[in-house]
């Protein structure tokens, strides 16, 4: 039973990771690509960690996987923030489809 649940979680995780990768290829500019990269890949990895937890139970490896989930959440969100802010300050423009840019005034 646990094996089944862990397989389902790992499958969902791989599926979300795949969607994130498709997003990185299809979306037009850096900022939108970061959206796909952060959200899908974070949830995908968390889902894989949950699968690992169900596979090993509350043992050595399982608890490590559980502890890794909040660490991954904080690091990936902070990493995305650092990347997107760095991109803007580096001078890369928003894509052609963009409709609004409030941050321009704040930077100057």
């Amino acid at each position: 039973m646990n094996n089944m649940i862990s397989l389902i979680f790992i499958t969902i995780g791989i599926l979300f990771n795949l969607l994130g990768c498709i997003g990185i290829i299809r979306l037009p500019d850096t900022y939108n690509r970061l959206q796909a990269a952060t959200k899908c890949v974070t949830l995908g990895c968390c889902s894989i960690f949950l699968g690992v937890l169900f596979h090993f139970g509350f043992s050595d490896a399982g608890v490590k996987a559980l502890v890794a989930i909040p660490i991954l959440f904080f690091t990936s969100t902070v990493g995305a923030h650092a990347l997107i802010r760095g991109t803007y300050h580096f001078g890369i423009k928003l894509g052609e489809k963009s409709v609004k840019d409030d941050y321009k005034d704040a930077v100057q």
């Binding site: 969607l19 979306l27 959200k39 949830l43 489809k97 963009s98 409709v99």
Partner: peptide
């Protein structure tokens, strides 16, 4: 995640980005 999945897989890609 479902939102990003929808935008990524939709053929016309309904995005309207901005800050």
């Amino acid at each position: 995640n479902l939102d990003v999945a929808y935008r990524v897989l939709h053929p016309a890609m309904p995005i309207r980005p901005g800050i």
